[in-house]
């Protein structure tokens, strides 16, 4: 990339957003403006993809609400996102977890990949 463009975008990046990866269960805290009021909306689900790089990078969060699959795409470096909490980690064997879209019911929420605890604690037991 052009070094001048790199410099302009660099200051807008949020390096702390590198903490979560594909397959993680996250809670995205998004600031929403209604008139003059501002409130925080939380969207919880599984990160099924991270796309792009630098300022263009986005991530997709999927959850099923009342039996209907809902996906939201967030820009990683958006100032509207207050924080992204990771509440479940997993080791995935795929970069994009689009296969979750074809799952129904209980299976849709479970990331049936190798969990962290399976790799670490599970082995010890």
């Amino acid at each position: 990339m052009n070094p001048i463009i790199d410099e302009i975008t660099q200051e807008q990046l949020k390096p702390e957003r590198d903490q979560f990866k594909v397959g993680d269960g996250v809670r995205v805290h998004q600031r929403i403006r209604e008139g003059n009021k501002e409130r925080v909306q939380v969207f919880a689900g599984v990160v099924i993809a991270r796309k792009g790089h630098g300022i263009h990078e986005t991530f997709t969060v999927r959850r099923s609400q009342m039996g209907v699959g809902v996906e939201k795409v967030f820009p990683v470096n958006s100032p509207v996102i207050e924080k992204v909490e990771v509440d479940r980690e997993s080791i995935t064997m795929r970069a994009r977890m689009y296969y979750l879209r074809s799952r129904i019911g209980k299976a849709a929420n479970a990331v049936k990949e190798k969990r962290v605890y399976m790799a670490t604690r599970g082995g010890a037991k």
Partner: peptide, 21 residues
């Protein structure tokens, strides 16, 4: 013309911009 990128404005909108020296 240096190239294109995106920047966040003060009201948190991501706009496409062309950088010109």
């Amino acid at each position: 013309k240096i190239g294109m990128t995106q920047v966040y404005t003060d009201d948190n909108v991501l706009v496409p911009v062309t950088v010109i020296e």
